[in-house]
Structures are given as structure tokens and as C-alpha cells.
Amino acid sequence: MNEPTTKPAPAVGASQWSDAWRRLRKNRAALVSAAVLVALAVVSVVQPMLSALPYDRADLALGPTPPSAAHWLGTDLYGRDLLSRLCFGGRVSLAVGLVSTGLSFVIGTSWGGIAGYFGGRVDQLMMRVVDVLYTFPLIIFVILVLAFFAHQDTVFYEAFVAVYGLVNERARDPGYLPLYRLFFVFFALGSVSWLTMARIVRGQVISLREQPFIEAARSIGVGHLGIVFGHLVPNALGPIIVYTALTIPEVMLVEAFLSFLGLGTEEPLSSWGLLVAGGAETLDIYPWLIAFPGLVLSLTLVSFNFLGDGLRDALDPRVRRDS
């Protein structure tokens, strides 16, 4: 039924973004979520700079205490300040969100962009790989990789030492092993969560590549890669932003999941998943140890999903007519 809703051709360019912004502003859940996330990020980053209680300073004499004036969220079994540990966990989640999502963004847009742009055999082969990987529970794969390669005698560790050595000359100190492991988790996660992104970008690129402005770019001698990354990907930015926003909570969740199982972030570092795991063991006697980490983790994930949904409604033209 195309009659009464026939509209003039959709405006492109700047007005498209202002349209999206207008729609997003009307979505109260998305705005509140964004505010919550910004607040959590700021607290996680700033608190360790202001607090006199490092995340790993134990006070065995103190032991577990409920929330108090000195320790706003209480202390854990070793007397460590829960707020500080939570904020360190927030930094870990933030880092996972940035590093892993960034990696998945790079792999996903490249993979999808190249497959979509070249089409034919290349496309078929590349997307077949994506299809096969899709049927595989990639978390299991990450567990496999982590269990076997997050160790000292691997090339990955040498790479870590080489890079981290640039800022810290004691990089090989065993005390930094958990840190190495953490980075390993980041990269492992990023390298398995690009599948949806690749599909989205490919679809967008296929629908864009026959457009006149691509012809124009080609005619003035822009190379293949220039067209893919200079013209096609930027024009598919709307959906890319949406799915980036949805990938962030996904990788955060997996990091927490792995840490919960004891396969991700390790003591004495802290991560929300690790805190939940610790809290779960004593939930009948020290309930605050699970309540706060569980709450913060859930709040973050819920907020990201609300924000992602809001962005999708605002930016993805395919679902726009639903509202």
C-alpha cells in the first residue's frame, strides 16, 4: 500500500544525521542509558585517581565488612575496598569495550567491505567463512585459545613483552602476567566478534557500490581500497554505528563470563565477572559482595542495549517505519 505515505525522496547527507539526532532525542530510555554509561565511565576512570584505597590493597585484619563511611560499598574477604575493585573492573570493561570492539570493527568492516565490493567468487568464499563461524559457539573457541595460549612460552607473550616493554622496562616481571592475560582476552574477543559487522557492512556496500557517486570516484581514478574505505564504508556509517554499539555490551558480557569461570581476568586484578564469581560463593553471608558488582554489570549491559536499540531506531532506515 503505497498511497498516502508517499514521501519525497529521503534527504541525504547532513539532514539525515540531524533527523537521526531528532529521533534519538525523543527516545527517553536511550538518553537515560547514555547518561548512565557516561557516569559509570567517568567514575571508573576518576575514582582510582582520587581514592586513597588501591584496588589491590588487602587488609586481612579488617576482612569483609558491609558498606560504611570508610568503605562506601564495603570490603571483600581480604579487606579490599569494593568500590575501588569495582572501578578497576569498570576500567577493564571499558577497555574490553574499546579494544575488542575496535578490533572487531576493523576486521568486520574490512572483511565485509572487501567481500561486498569485489563480489563474485571472493564474496562467496569470504561469506562462506562467516557462515561456518556463525554456527560455532565462539566463546568455546575463546576458552580453548585462552587455556592453551595465554601462557609465557608463546609468541603472543613475547609480543606483549615487546610492546609493554616500551612503557615499562620490567614487563617480563611475573607480576604482569595477569595483565598479559587480560590483553590476550581482549584480542581473542575482538578477533571472534566481527561476524555480524562483516555481514552488515557487506550488505550496505553491495547496495551502495552501483551508486553514481562510486562511479564518479572510480572515474577520477580512486583505487579499490580508496573506494571501499574512503567512500563505501563512510556512507554505510549509520548501521555500522548501530552494530558497534551492540557489540560493546556483547564483548563486555563475554569478558565477565570468562572471568566468572576463572578463565579471563585473574586475581589480583579485578573485573566485574571476577567480583560476581567471588560474591556468589558467599552470597548468603556477605550479600553486598554480589549485589553491587551484579547490579553495576547488569545496569551497564541493560543501558548499552537500550542505547543500541535507540540508535537502531534512529539510524537504521529499514526499521524506521515500525515506529
Binding site: L253, F260, G273, V276, G279, A280, L297, S298, L301, V302
Partner: peptide, 16 residues
């Protein structure tokens, strides 16, 4: 959306 976001390992201890 909430059901989707709250991890199983947070939900389970809370319900317990």
C-alpha cells in the same frame, strides 16, 4: 531487553 542484558551468572545468584 532486560532479560537479554542481565547475565545468567548474575541472575542465578540473585534468584538463589
Amino acid at each position: 531487553l532486560v532479560g537479554l542484558s542481565v547475565p545468567r551468572f548474575v541472575l542465578a545468584p540473585l534468584l538463589i
